[in-house]
Design a binder for these strands. Structure first.
Length: 426
RNA sequence: GUGGGUGUAGCUCAGCUGGUAGAGCGCCGCGUUGUGGUCGCGGAUGCCGCGGGUUCAAGUCCCGUCACUCACCCCA
């Protein structure tokens, strides 16, 4: 193996053909439901004022306290690569007065996020997410919509080995008292130092500790869902009712916790059973105090972030051929200089007409060109030599059948275009 | 960040207790004229991850390092 001078930064995945086609297909499938439910696209900065994440996501979260890529720019401003999407969306809504229009504000986004974690299969320092936010509404039907849209994205890809965990984390009314109760309970448990410290900082987090020796002690731990205030209880019941209406299956997960501080009430997570420890393929929830905490109006919101990388891994684990298929509809094989000039003209016309087409470059000879044509996956190959140039026609070869026929140059574009649109509708 | 595993051709991997590298797939060429896939024949390709150590001799043993990977943690 030749030793390269450079490597991609640690923990950063790269997608190139043919797998990149699957990556794009996953991203598009996850975004599709949002684009068909009234969500508008928002393109956000990849880095923001560090304080936005500290305040929005929460100072005590691991994501902010030890996983952010933070740096000073030339004006000595502290900036951070975004570790998640919601805080940036809130900032943009406030800054651009989107909350002054009709509510809820519905936005979706896609792109890279950054967390300085130890890389693992499915855990990357640059991770790709598709997310959406619905801000300015606390209708429980909106909670159900958001969850249903995530579920629909996974189903569009054909995934089946995943599940949805759902719970309610309460609100500013009922959570503080529960939190105290939980802290008191945890102080009676036999925990190691690190866990003890976590119990003080973020007691909820201890609930989903994976270690058995911890879990056995938590059997009788108090649960938030049993301590919800009336308003939260009603909201949660309503959400579940609408989820049933939407036909979404879920599992009650009273110990579900999320790593970001802003979540309130409805909280959910999608996990895939074939991904090992990095099983979370998406998650989200309601965040009722977030916008206010970044300086906006007291509008509540709900949203999700779906992991594009992990969803791709999940598709692969299930053996789904996502985004497969030929990259072009036709491939042109010119023989001779005259034909090469005509071919360049022809592919321009074909592409203009919406036909995906490539041609043989480099003058490798007919055999080599046909081989390239085969590898392109194109179902149709257009062969053009001196004879065809003279008769203003081409040979069109059906690569599946192996059959070949002569087609007049005049009607070629129209004919291929027809084939392509037919395939597109089936 | 903590602990374990792995690192040999483009890919997947073999290489027993140390004796200066192999397979399959892929790639390139040939099988006569302007035709791919299948088949047959032929061919190229390795700082054996990197650095050090032990040894007459290291892909093989030891140390370090980097990368990947599994679990914890965290989360998408």
């Amino acid at each position: 193996m030749t030793v390269a001078d450079f490597q991609a930064p640690k923990g950063v995945p790269e997608y190139f053909p043919p797998r990149s086609a699957a990556f794009l297909a996953v991203r598009d499938a996850l975004a599709y439901p949002a684009t068909h439910a009234g969500y508008g696209y928002i393109e956000l900065p990849v880095f923001e004022d560090t304080a936005l994440f500290v305040r929005g996501v929460g100072e005590s979260t691991d994501v902010v306290s030890k996983e952010m890529y933070t740096f000073l720019d030339r004006g000595e401003r502290s900036l951070s690569l975004r570790p998640e999407g919601t805080a940036g969306v809130m900032r943009s809504i406030v800054e651009n007065r989107m909350d002054q229009g009709s509510l809820p504000v519905k936005l979706w986004y896609a792109g890279p996020f950054f967390r300085a974690e130890r890389p693992q299969h499915g855990r990357y320092r640059q991770l790709q997410q598709v997310g959406l936010e619905a801000v300015g509404g606390d209708d429980p039907a909106l909670d159900a919509e958001v969850i249903a849209l995530a579920d629909e994205g996974y189903r569009r890809l054909g995934l089946s080995h995943y599940r949805l965990d759902l719970t309610s984390l309460g609100c500013a009314e009922c959570r503080p008292a529960y939190r105290e109760e939980l802290i008191a309970f945890l102080s009676t448990c036999d925990l190691d130092d690190a866990t003890r410290a976590r119990a003080q900082m973020n007691p909820l987090r201890v609930l989903d500790d994976k270690r058995e020796q911890v879990q056995v002690q938590l059997t009788n731990a108090p649960l938030m869902v049993d301590r919800l205030c009336d308003a939260c209880r009603e909201h949660y019941d309503a959400v579940r009712g609408f989820l049933r209406d939407a036909g979404v299956q879920w599992q009650e997960a009273p110990r579900l916790v999320r790593g970001l501080d802003y979540y309130t009430r409805t909280t959910f997570e999608f996990t895939h059973e074939m991904l090992g420890a990095q099983s979370g393929i998406g998650g989200g929830g309601r965040y009722d105090g977030l916008m206010e905490s970044v300086g906006g109006a007291a509008l509540s919101g709900i949203g999700f972030g779906l992991g594009t990388d992990r969803t791709l891994l999940a598709c692969e684990a299930e053996g789904l051929e996502v985004g497969a298929g030929p990259r072009v509809d036709a491939f042109v094989v010119p023989i001779g200089e005259q034909a090469r000039h005509l071919s360049v003209r022809l592919i321009a016309e074909l592409r203009e007409a919406g036909v995906r087409v490539d041609m043989a470059y480099g003058g490798r000879g007919v055999k080599g060109s046909m081989k390239a044509a085969d590898r392109s996956g194109a179902p149709a190959v257009i062969i053009m030599g001196d004879d065809e140039v003279a008769s203003k026609s081409v040979q069109v070869k059906d690569m599946h059948e192996g059959s070949q026929r002569s087609v007049a140059l005049d009607g070629l574009v129209a004919e291929l275009k027809k084939t392509v649109t037919q395939e597109g509708t089936t």
